[in-house]
């Protein structure tokens, strides 16, 4: 296992120590139960936004804690949902009297734990709203599945809801904006390699040198289908076409295009993918007005990428452009 770690069971706790040491200007880390919270939390009168999920997706979520995005993040063990006590403690820590919004990627584990946390928080008098993120078009039929997964759109929902909360919009309105971003976003991902969960010690799946997986999630799971490796141009078509058909996106739409790295794919390749995505969209008359390129929602060291498109309107655009100051996303501040 080629990892820069000490004990496999300590990776999350030790990475949190690193976050605390590196970003004391932006956030604080609570060790037990583990959560990260913006330095000045709770902000009186502001909706507190809490997200979280298994670790291994860094910078998601801890890297997005700060001004204009998340108030707190709850890290679980690698690829394992955190627990209700973390979410409850984080909700208390960010509750500035205007209620707390939980942003939840739609995985059974995350849903169950956040549900229990909300029950506990409400019982303790905190107003809680929850928004499920489920943008992955690779999961096709929610009658026969746990429903679409939350993937790339998570960053966009967190950023935009964070901006809305920063404007002191009320809880219901912030939740509403978060739901709109999720509704207007679609994603799909692929992998060239698997990844190795530290405690498992070997890759979750094996891919031959000439194979790839299309329709993966972000937990090292194999995807919908295994195929022969293809060019960046061909991969872009396989990812973008299902996205476009699903919303659907139409000629004249203005979008935020997000090419996300899964962790092991260098930026050079992500920009090649971005060029291919841009070419396809241009051919359809869809205009890229904002972009994001980089490893933001990762799956440890997996090689691969995902594409997310968000249909923008003036309101979402203005919230996207609003200042944000977190370890991993920062502008205007």
């Amino acid at each position: 296992m080629k990892k820069l770690i000490n004990q496999p069971q300590n990776v999350v706790a030790e990475a949190l120590r690193g976050m605390a040491a590196a970003h004391a200007d932006l956030l604080r880390v609570n060790a037990e139960p583990p959560y990260l919270v913006r330095r000045d939390a709770p902000v009186q009168g502001k909706v507190g936004i809490v997200s979280g999920g298994g670790s291994g997706h860094e910078p998601l979520h801890g890297g997005f804690v700060g001004t204009g995005m998340l108030d707190a993040a709850c890290p679980g063990p690698v690829f394992t949902s955190p627990t209700p006590d973390q979410m409850l403690a984080a909700s208390h820590a960010v509750n500035g009297g205007a209620g707390v919004l939980h942003l939840i990627k739609n995985y059974t584990g995350d849903c169950l734990n956040f549900e229990m946390a909300a029950e506990l928080a409400r019982a303790e008098g905190i107003e809680v709203e929850q928004v499920l993120i489920n943008d992955d078009v690779a999961v096709q039929d929610s009658l026969y599945t746990a429903g679409r997964r939350g993937v790339g759109a998570t960053v966009l929902v967190e950023k935009i809801a964070g901006a809305a909360a920063e404007q002191r919009r009320p809880l219901k309105a912030v939740a509403e904006v978060a739901r709109t971003v999720n509704d207007q976003s679609r994603s799909m991902g692929m992998a060239l390699t698997s990844c190795t969960v530290p405690q498992a010690g070997r890759p979750t799946f094996e891919l031959a040198e000439d194979e790839m997986e299309i329709g993966i999630g972000i937990h090292g799971e194999p995807g919908r289908r295994r195929m022969k490796r293809a060019s960046a141009a061909e991969v872009a078509v396989m990812l973008v076409e299902p996205i476009l058909g699903d919303l659907p996106f139409r000629s004249g739409d203005e979008v935020l295009a997000f090419v996300n790295g899964m962790g092991g794919t260098p930026l050079l390749e992500l920009y090649i993918m971005f060029a291919e995505v841009a070419r396809i969209l241009e051919g359809k008359g869809i205009r890229i007005v904002r972009s994001l390129v980089g490893p933001y929602v990762t799956s440890l060291e997996m090689a691969g990428c995902s594409v997310t498109l968000l249909k923008l309107d003036g309101e979402l655009l203005q919230l996207w452009d609003a200042p944000v100051k977190t370890p991993a996303l920062r502008w205007g501040a």
Binding site: S81, P82, P84, G109, L112, N113
Partner: peptide, 12 residues
């Protein structure tokens, strides 16, 4: 279990 397992199996 609720506060140490997480994932799907913890709450269940």
């Amino acid at each position: 279990l609720l506060s140490t397992v997480g994932g799907t199996s913890g709450p269940l």
